[in-house]
Write a protein that binds this DNA or RNA. Structure first.
Lengths: 134, 134
DNA sequence: GACTATCCACGACGTTTGTAGTAGATTTTG
DNA sequence: CAAAATCTACTACAAACGTCGTGGATAGTC
């Protein structure tokens, strides 16, 4: 029912993404993860992001022994849906079709992905009218 | 070649969208357009957005008689592509397929749109390897 | 010609975001 | 234990953004 707003900045989202990928982690672990992929940022900066994410309710912390352990409190799925809807509303007048077409035209797909897309579309075609948004 | 950054705020984008829809317009015209669709905002606010958009090179102005006429200096297409790429990078690890699948699953489509999608996919299937991003 | 509406240049202000340093507490290590 | 490393709380700060108000210039109206 609700369409909560996910106001997460770019840098904050990188951190949240790290948590999705790594699972519950300390600031240090997230920092290392970011460094590994070439992202230059200071420890305290990451700490700030995580603190802010917590304040906004997007992550939770467990007081552990040494350091706090943070874990995502929102699913990637939800954020994806929210951002997608935002994109649709802002630039496609809310309509999915134009974006879908653009995406398929400009994206690169493997044969498997193409088959999957086709199957999905075929199924769509059949069970019209009872759409239960994913 | 270039993948210019389109740093346009939400409110600024509303204004730019109005220009895409209305064509070259004065601040007053854009304001009216926004008001018509229930968007409450002051004249000077819109003026500020337009000035900022101009400073960033996203719109141009023609000194006319009475008032300035603003027109978009970037196409909707370009902004769409840029934002789509951003979304893909930030939340889909750059891969188009997952988003395409999600979009098709959660979107609502008319039969015509479905046919169009299918045709596009069929064509994709054939001319693999020579993708010329739109 | 005086009043009124319109237009824009500037400045302002609070919030969000990216980014990080300092300092004090705690833990690990030599 | 003393020194070094680690951790978190706090503070800071600049840029971006959303949002307007003021005030002076111009134009249209009675």
């Amino acid at each position: 029912m609700s369409e909560r707003e996910y106001d997460i900045g770019t840098a904050e989202l990188e951190v949240l993404s790290a948590l999705w990928e790594l699972g519950p982690s300390t600031v240090r672990a997230v920092l290392n993860h970011l460094h590994e992929r070439g992202r230059r940022v200071a420890y305290t900066t990451v700490l700030t992001y995580m603190t802010r994410l917590e304040a906004k309710g997007f992550v939770r912390t467990d007081k552990r022994e040494q350091a706090y352990v943070y874990r995502a409190a929102v699913t990637q799925s939800k954020v994806r849906r929210s951002r997608l809807r935002q994109l649709l509303d802002q630039l496609y007048d809310g309509a999915s079709a134009p974006l879908a077409l653009q995406l398929i035209r400009q994206g690169r797909f493997t044969r498997e992905e193409i088959d999957e897309l086709r199957q999905l579309i075929d199924r769509l075609d059949v069970k019209r009218g009872g759409s239960q948004p994913d």
